[in-house]
């Protein structure tokens, strides 16, 4: 298995995703934006469909579309402050609708490609995608190291963060954009339908296991690494979609830790 180039790239990508997923996932959970990842992944499909229709690299159109929508999400979150999930409902269904319409306009074999993006594929990971993921991982880890205190304060309470002098709106938009770019890059591997599970579940599991902020992130990285690697191996031998296999392993770990916590 390890002699195949595509599997080597899949493992490299998995390790990189394991490092960034708990960081973004924790902030998404604490900012009550878990569903934002789902929204952006649906919108990503529209980005991919646009790329396929125009004959441009779908990764690039995907990033372009997701970055715009990530900014729009922050605007709608402010407009519908009390019912912020409205923005998610609008953009999730809108993204999916645009993707389906663009696919309908495309007469070539785009449907097959879209299916790959929907369910993910480890065979399609290119060297270029691994390099892009590596750059993104370095960027996110550096940003976390530099702005950890600001993000801690913003996430705990946005209003006290604002009165403490933080540019809360700019920070929120940049965080959304960074999440959007991450989703655009990992979606072809794990699939649009399960990308949010890959981001959210490691942090959700580690939230129950540590009482400190850094502890949650480090344990989350360990959980993500176990889940991603076991999921890839399982996906390879069983011929199952990688995103689904990884998600099931995460849910297994989640149930196991919940059970152990209860009996301890």
């Amino acid at each position: 298995m390890f002699f195949y180039g595509f599997m080597q790239r899949a493992f490299q990508a998995s390790i990189l995703i394991s490092l960034i997923a708990p960081i973004l996932g924790l902030f998404l959970i604490l900012r009550r934006q878990s569903l934002m990842a789902d929204t952006l992944s649906h919108v990503s499909l529209a980005g991919v469909a646009l790329g396929l229709l125009l004959g441009i690299d779908p990764t690039l159109t995907n990033i372009f579309v997701v970055v715009i929508v990530a900014g729009l999400l922050e605007y709608l979150r402010k407009v519908y402050r009390t019912y912020s999930e409205i923005s998610i409902a609008i953009l999730m269904s809108g993204g999916m609708a645009v993707a389906l319409v663009l696919m309908g306009l495309n007469d070539s074999g785009a449907t097959l490609s879209i299916t790959q993006f929907l369910f993910g594929s480890i065979v399609t990971i290119s060297v270029q995608q691994v390099w892009m993921l590596l750059s993104l991982t370095i960027l996110i880890i550096v940003l976390y190291g530099v702005f950890r205190k600001q993000m801690y304060t913003l996430t705990f309470d946005e209003e006290t963060a604002y009165t403490a002098g933080l540019p809360t709106q700019v920070m929120s938009i940049l965080f959304n954009v960074l999440t959007g770019v991450t989703i655009a890059l990992i979606m072809p591997i794990v699939g649009a339908l399960l990308v949010s599970a890959i981001l959210i579940l490691p942090a959700a599991i580690s939230l129950r296991l540590s009482k400190s902020f850094n502890g949650v992130i480090f344990i989350g990285m360990g959980v993500a690494m176990i889940g991603m690697i076991l999921g890839l191996i399982g996906s390879y031998y069983l011929g199952t979609p990688p995103g689904a296999t990884i998600t099931l392993i995460y849910i297994g770990i989640f149930s196991l830790t919940a059970l152990l916590k209860k009996t301890m």
Partner: peptide
């Protein structure tokens, strides 16, 4: 307040020092 936030009491109170030029 954000009661599920993963933080110890000490971490949270220490965060009060950040706006004092400790970002």
């Amino acid at each position: 307040f954000n009661a599920g936030f993963p933080s110890t009491v000490l971490e949270l109170v220490q965060s009060g020092r950040y706006p004092r030029g400790k970002w």
